[in-house]
Amino acid sequence: MPLKRPKGDALAAIIAERTGYAFHDVALLQRALTHSSVRGKVGADNERLEFLGDRVLALVVAEMLFRRHPEATQGELAVRLSSLVSGDSCAEVAEEIGMTEFIHADAAVRGVNGRKAKNVRADAMEALIAAVYLDSGLEPARAFILRFWEKRAQTVGRAVRDPKTMLQEWLAQKDSARPTYAIIGREGPDHEPVFTVEVQAPGFDASVATGRSRQAAEQAAAAAFLAREGVTDNADAAA
């Protein structure tokens, strides 16, 4: 038989040990870990907390990035923020804490995997942040977030050097569709071809670049797009 999910003070003690934060209102903690699939009445699940936690997380991480990268442009900060507060990042923190075993959900939800499972963990993580905020205020919530997100901020800079990733995340911040790439030219011999690629996104002019492979040309086109829109400077685009 599966182990019983801890509740009440036992749950609060485990969360305190794993996160460094001790809840005063244990019922608030339990609501943060209750999926909508088992709600009994409005407000008894974590959906409203998830909404608030998403905003608290974004505020704290945005301030952290603003202070950490004084020379970064608005576009660069937006890309870094998008990566750090994404569902994937929230799910990773939830896994680090070991929250999955504490999430109260019906059997169908507990049995999901892949993207759906990540979404459940990410939502619970955002709800937990909101619960800390409501339980003790912004400063404890800030300390809670920084404990798990500061180390991620140290590595996200390397990830966003990939122009295609940067462009996709920047467009997501703008509520725009994903960029599309198309080969519009190919020159040179088969053993040393040069590809010309165009990248398009709704509401923006297309950018064109060349490369010795399709992938290199796509990266170059994305870099040119980002530089033109002021997301990166020319040095970044060339890197």
Rank of each mutant, 00 (worst) to 15 (best):
N113K: 05
M99S: 13
L128T: 08
W149M: 08
A143E: 10
V120I: 13
Q154N: 15
S136P: 04
R142E: 14
H104M: 14
A130I: 06
S89T: 12
P140R: 14
R161W: 06
E96P: 09
D162V: 15
A143N: 07
I97H: 14
D123A: 11
H104T: 09
V160K: 12
A124W: 01
R110T: 01
M125I: 04
R161D: 10
I145T: 04
E95Q: 13
W149D: 07
E96D: 12
G137R: 09
D88C: 10
V109E: 07
R110I: 00
M125L: 07
L146N: 11
Y133A: 11
A107E: 12
M125E: 05
S89Y: 03
D162Y: 03
R158T: 04
I145H: 03
S83N: 12
E139G: 01
E139P: 11
N119L: 15
L138F: 15
D123K: 03
L84R: 05
A124E: 02
V85F: 00
V120L: 00
K151G: 07
G157A: 08
G87F: 11
V85Q: 07
D123V: 02
V160S: 02
F144I: 12
L146P: 06
I97R: 13
V132H: 05
E139I: 06
E150P: 02
W149F: 08
V132A: 13
A153I: 09
Q154R: 14
N113R: 03
G137L: 10
S86W: 11
T155S: 13
A108R: 09
S83Q: 12
A124S: 14
K116E: 12
R152W: 02
Q154I: 03
N113S: 13
N113Q: 07
L84D: 06
S82K: 12
F144W: 03
E92V: 05
G137W: 07
A130T: 01
R158K: 13
A153K: 02
A130Q: 02
G111K: 03
A94M: 09
W149N: 04
K116D: 04
L138K: 07
M125R: 04
A159D: 11
A107Y: 02
E92F: 02
R152P: 10
F144V: 06
L146T: 05
E101W: 03
D162E: 14
W149A: 09
S136G: 09
A143F: 01
L128Q: 01
G98W: 15
K116A: 15
S89Q: 11
F102W: 15
A131D: 09
K151I: 05
R121D: 00
G114P: 00
V160E: 15
A159N: 11
R142V: 12
W149E: 05
G87Y: 14
R158V: 04
L146I: 02
A105G: 06
T100C: 03
